[in-house]
Amino acid sequence: MTIQTPAKEKTHTFRLLAPGVVWMILFLVAPIMMIVYVSFWTQTTFSINSTLTLDSWKNFFGSEAYVGALWTTVRLWLIVLALTFLIGYPAALYVGLLVKSKTVSTVLLVLCVIPFWTSFLIRVLAWRPMLGKEGAINILLQKAGIIDSPIEVLLFSELSVIIGMTQIYVVFMVGPIAFMLGRIDRNIIEAARDLGAGFGRIFWKIILPLSLPGVVVGAIFVSVMVLGEFATSGALSGRKVNLLGNIIVTQVGSLKWAMASVVGVILTILLGIVVAGFLRIVDLKREL
């Protein structure tokens, strides 16, 4: 056995890192720099040139529609995040902690993933026959005599976008939380019971804090996906709800690269802030 000198170890580390670093520079760092660069290009109706200007940025912040889209994005993100947490946590609690048999809990988790066997778009579009004016929900409610005329707000509204996104992304909340809950030593919960704590106390003082890393990972998953969303809002809002993602799509569609880049940069910054914020809550490196 030879003893490696620190210098030799260093070159080793560097060689091991090199492929990853090259990959990230080529396909992550360079494109992002490019987007930032293009956002300062000069855009005319039919062409774009690399003369630097702040026009697109001014245009974005000067337009009520664009700034409105930013706030809509933030609002929908917060609502969907809250809903996925409120719906996902109890489900995860059941799957990860209350179900005693490991087999049953695995089966339940697989069931959660079954919707992913169809494509994303199908899952989104499947909400149309559910929520529509003559959709399943309205028909059932009318047949049951609960309502006289169909609820129109169900489809092509912000509500339908929220329902669709929550259903699609809730599983990304359930998974990490269930995983963290499954790792809690059952003895710890029994110890808390033995010390006289009732279920509520045990939940707030033991279970929730110990599952927090799962909540944070789930929240990051959901946030990243919801903030970049355009398909669900496109398909279920009837173009009434415009998110930053939708704006990028339309701008790219009409070859307005500079504006699309501006929105892209704003979205990237927003995501950066959100992810960094979540990572401040728990030290994931230590917890996982």
Partner: peptide, 13 residues
């Protein structure tokens, strides 16, 4: 009734 667990079962957080 007090219970002392074999693996101690301390609250890690």
């Amino acid at each position: 009734i007090g219970f002392v667990f074999q693996n101690f079962a301390l609250f890690p957080h």
